[in-house]
Design a protein around this nucleic acid. Structure first.
Lengths: 107, 107
DNA sequence: ATATGATATTGCAATATTACGATAATACTA
DNA sequence: TAGTATTATCGTAATATTGCAATATCATAT
């Protein structure tokens, strides 16, 4: 097949995987970092900055937004994408929790 | 196309994405958690535990091992997979560094 | 050396992801 | 309201990922 079995893994495991998937592409990492680096919510120039086509960037933005990491709001003609701090901390906690509860007991 | 442009993103961004990719599948998360939950390096029963076929598990183990998260050593007839603590902390740091340096400056 | 149990590799099919051009939708401006 | 700039969606092609059956490899034990 190739499709993931939906019943095999716990919800927590699926959550971790889903969050990781968002960061699993350098373009999305770059987009998130770029958005966070701007003092104002400049967004239209993400396309120029990252170097991918406008539709591709838009697609990546959807993925990031679906995970709740950013939120967009209209700012004149363009859209202002910003980090959702609350959700961002939440994801950091999910990762930290995973790393902290996963220790080595042997070797 | 569908292939990532190799020159667009920084090495750091690619590193983060590569690490995230390992955790971007619930089966791999489950495998890592299972390995870490055993006091001894029991490994052959990962297949029974996770519920995927032996080749599939082997494939996932390769991905995890390539990232350096686990290391395997022969233990009798079977192979003992254990968490590589040093590398594990390293990855946690990569993530934390990403999250901590990515703040919201607007909205 | 051979048999055995355990893990890895190969080959292949199904699905998902990534990317872009063309086009549509949206919000503002004149 | 028509025009313009900006972002989203659609359609499609290329590549990657996921999964398993069949087979090969490897380390031990006999």
């Amino acid at each position: 097949m190739g499709a993931s079995n939906l019943t095999l893994h716990s919800q927590k495991q699926k959550d971790i995987a889903a969050v990781a998937k968002v960061l699993a592409h350098p373009a999305r990492v770059a987009i998130i970092q770029y958005i966070s680096s701007q003092d104002a919510c400049i967004c239209g120039d993400i396309v120029d900055k990252i170097g991918l086509s406008q539709p591709t960037i838009s697609q990546h933005l959807q993925v990031i937004r679906s995970a709740g990491l950013i939120k967009g709001s209209f700012e004149g003609k363009s859209i202002c994408y910003c980090i959702d701090v609350v959700r961002f901390k939440e994801l950091q906690n999910i990762f930290n929790n995973f790393f902290n509860t996963t220790a080595a007991n042997c070797c």
